[in-house]
Structures are given as structure tokens and as C-alpha cells.
Design a protein around this nucleic acid. Structure first.
Length: 261
DNA sequence: ATGGCCTGATCTTCAGGA
């Protein structure tokens, strides 16, 4: 089974590339973030024509997550149980389902903006709710994984130049501790291969020639429990999908599983 | 090749992204 995660930065703007990518890669299950659409605008019909079912948690121009699967899509849970509010609203940042025998979450962790910003505190609260939400499944016998845009670089080497990140979000000890807390709950990271250069970055800013100069960040992550990680045959970042006009600023992370092993 | 932001809405300017 091929499972992947991709922050598409608007599924409407990305639809032709998304459909072509699904066909070309033969991905079975895709976790999508930043759909930037309402549930009604989500292109479920176009995906169905390719053989994919969809589950969507989206409310409009910001955020929005989805799961698309051609190996079944059952027991959908929309939203993070006990998830915190931001400015009085619960944002669409999580959705889970069982696809082909694997319990899967697609998550879009809040950005945080600046360490002193209320959005940063919200980010840390959101992580606490995520850990609580996944703890039981992480300790279970069924293959289980959380995939998405975590908006945290796990180590200093996961950004192109750590010296430029003083006083920045995405690299603070508290954010990294939130990732460690997921590991303490029974999850481990699936490290993808880089198809070029040393570090498998997953995001490059549109500005300042970020991609051509490989000024990237590794912030789209895959965490699985032991039944999941022991079945991983390969994992890589598809940087080819970041190339050219009309690309998302994130590249997909692709994981191949041998679930029978 | 991979090229000095992109997206959708509040729509010709702006917030948000990271």
C-alpha cells in the first residue's frame, strides 16, 4: 500500500496537478492539508472518477484537511476530540479514518506565527490535544499513523540554515517537545529518503528562490506505531512535485508499506 | 532543469503562510 501526505496549498488551485500526481504515483491513501475550500467546493466528484473516496473537514479559505483513499474509507472522525479553539472557533485541522486496514490521521498543526503570539500558545495546546487523541491507537495492535504538516522541524538540520531561525517558530524546544510527546505515546517517525541533496526537505518558500536554492524545511512528517513502522518498505519526499509553475510550496511525503510482512 | 510568491476573499488590497 502506498500512503502519502501533501499540503497542497489550495486543492482548487492544485486540482490538475493533484489528479495527475495520484495517477502517476499510484497512491492508495493521501492525507491532504490546506484544502482552502468549503466542504461543498471539495472536488469529490473528480476524485471519485479516479476511484478515490473522500472524507473532508473544511470550512473555507483557511486550513482544511482531507483523506482520499482507493482502498476503503471507514469510521471517519472529523476534527480533533477536545481540540482547542482559536479566536472562538474550532478550525478544520484534523480528520481520521480507517483505510485498507490502517487507521490514519491527516493533520495540519497551527503555524504559531511568532513565539510571543497567541497562535503559538494555541499551537502547543493543539499538540496536547493531538497526543491525547492518538494515545490509545498508538498503543494498539492495528497499524496506525499520523501524517501531515506538523509545522515543526524536528532537528536543527531540518532547516536550511538554523542561524536564521533565532526567535522563530518551528524550531523552539517546546514545539520539538511536542513531537517527543508523540513518541512517548508510542509513535516513531518514518524518515523519508531525499531524492536530491542530503536532507529530505518538504517545504520551500515561494519567495527568494527558495526551491532553486534549496532553502527548505522538513516539517511534513509521518509518525506511526510499531505495527505501522515495521511494515514500511520505503519512504521518500517527492520533490519533483515541487517543480515548475503551479506547484504547492510543499512536496508530498510518500510511504510504501508491506502490510502482510 | 528548478527561477526574484501564492491563494482566496474582505476582491485591485489584504491576511496568512513558515
Amino acid at each position: 500500500m502506498r500512503i502519502a501526505t501533501w499540503n497542497v496549498n489550495s486543492i482548487t488551485a492544485r486540482l490538475p496537478r493533484l489528479l495527475a500526481w495520484l495517477e502517476n504515483t499510484g497512491t492508495d491513501v493521501l492525507c491532504i492539508q490546506e484544502t482552502k475550500c468549503t466542504a461543498e467546493q471539495f472536488p469529490a466528484d473528480e476524485l471519485r472518477e479516479l476511484g478515490y473516496e473522500s472524507a473532508v473537514n473544511a470550512t473555507g479559505r483557511w486550513n482544511g484537511v482531507a483523506l482520499v483513499s482507493r482502498v476503503g474509507l471507514e469510521d471517519v472522525v472529523s476534527g480533533l476530540p477536545e481540540g482547542p479553539e482559536y479566536e472562538g472557533a474550532v478550525e478544520p485541522r484534523a480528520i481520521s479514518a480507517t483505510c485498507g486496514g490502517v487507521r490514519v490521521w491527516s493533520v495540519y498543526v497551527p503555524n504559531g506565527r511568532e513565539p510571543a503570539h497567541a497562535h503559538y500558545a494555541y499551537k502547543l495546546e493543539w499538540f496536547k490535544a493531538l497526543r491525547a487523541a492518538v494515545a490509545d491507537d498508538a498503543a494498539g495492535a492495528q497499524p496506525f499513523a499520523v501524517l501531515g504538516d506538523f509545522n515543526v522541524a524536528p532537528t536543527d538540520t531540518d532547516v536550511w540554515d538554523i542561524s536564521l531561525f533565532a526567535d522563530s517558530t518551528h524550531v523552539t524546544p517546546a514545539e520539538r517537545a511536542a513531537l517527543v510527546a508523540l513518541e512517548e505515546a508510542g509513535l516513531s517517525e518514518v524518515m523519508p529518503r531525499a531524492l536530491k541533496y542530503d536532507v529530505p526537505f518538504t517545504f520551500w518558500d515561494y519567495r527568494n528562490l527558495g526551491f532553486p536554492k534549496n532553502r527548505g524545511m522538513r516539517i511534513d512528517l509521518v509518525y506511526g506505531n510499531t505495527p505501522f513502522t515495521k511494515s514500511v518498505r520505503d519512504a521518500y519526499v517527492d520533490r519533483e512535485a515541487r517543480k515548475g509553475k503551479g506547484a504547492s510550496d510543499h512536496a508530498p511525503v510518500v510511504v510504501d508499506l508491506d502490510l502482510d510482512v
